[in-house]
């Protein structure tokens, strides 16, 4: 399953809940959730721990828009919108964590 998250983990528990529940599968961070994919914030250890369980992607245009394009955590894969589309087709279902 593809899990899509769009909230910063520093102000909302959506990503934390998602990472708790997601079994195997892919997690895509878009909009304000891309901050979770960057180094140096207090959520980084949680994200790094999750990398052992799920594959994590971040939307590059959202990283770039926020000036965070050069701060990606190693192990997170940056994708563009085309890559976003491919993630929805390579997974058999998807869920947006609103």
């Amino acid at each position: 399953m593809l899990h899509i998250v769009n909230k910063s983990p520093l102000e909302n528990t959506a990503l934390e809940s998602c990472l708790n529940l997601a079994g195997a599968g892919d997690v895509l961070l878009i909009e304000d959730a891309v901050y979770a994919a960057t180094v140096g914030n207090s959520f980084e250890p949680t994200l790094r721990a999750a990398l052992g369980k799920v594959k994590i992607y971040a939307l590059q245009p959202d990283l770039d828009a926020r000036g965070m394009g050069d701060r990606l955590v190693a192990g997170v894969t940056a994708v563009d919108y085309s890559g976003f589309v491919d993630l929805t087709t390579s997974n058999k279902n998807c869920q947006s964590w609103l």
Binding site: N6, I30, E31, D32, P61, D80, Y81, S82, F84, V85, D86, T89
Partner: peptide, 19 residues
Amino acid sequence: HQSSDSAYLFAKAAIARGH
């Protein structure tokens, strides 16, 4: 909210990808 923009860009990318 950014969701309209994200949805639109996703739709464009999906069409560009042949979907």
